[in-house]
Amino acid sequence: MTAAVLATWTPVCRVDQLEPERGVAALLDGRQVALFRTHEGSVHALGNVDPFSGAAVLSRGIVGDRGGVPTVASPVYKQVFSLVDGTCLDDPTVRVEVYDVSVDGGIVALRAVSQRVGR
């Protein structure tokens, strides 16, 4: 079901709606995604639901880095997730989904990572 939602590139917002290091949430057919733009300008997208609390709030976490890896810290219980692959750096058995991001003509678009694998 999830794959069907983002099987193809889906435009979400303008890139200038993403302030550096301040995430936003997007709603895509009932599914929530957290979008982040780093200080250097790269854009990342993770599932917005914090797996530890169940609240859809990862977009409201603090963006930074751990050992150079860009991260977001859950605003609920503060576990840190890699923006690159969604792994929880405090508990590597936990991961949130990651989305492919494209920025084209100032528009941010997403699709499910599995599409990349299937290509």
Binding site: T93, V94, R95, S114
Partner: peptide
């Protein structure tokens, strides 16, 4: 809590 499945 675990690695979610994405697509299939």
């Amino acid at each position: 809590i675990g690695i979610p499945e994405v697509g299939s």
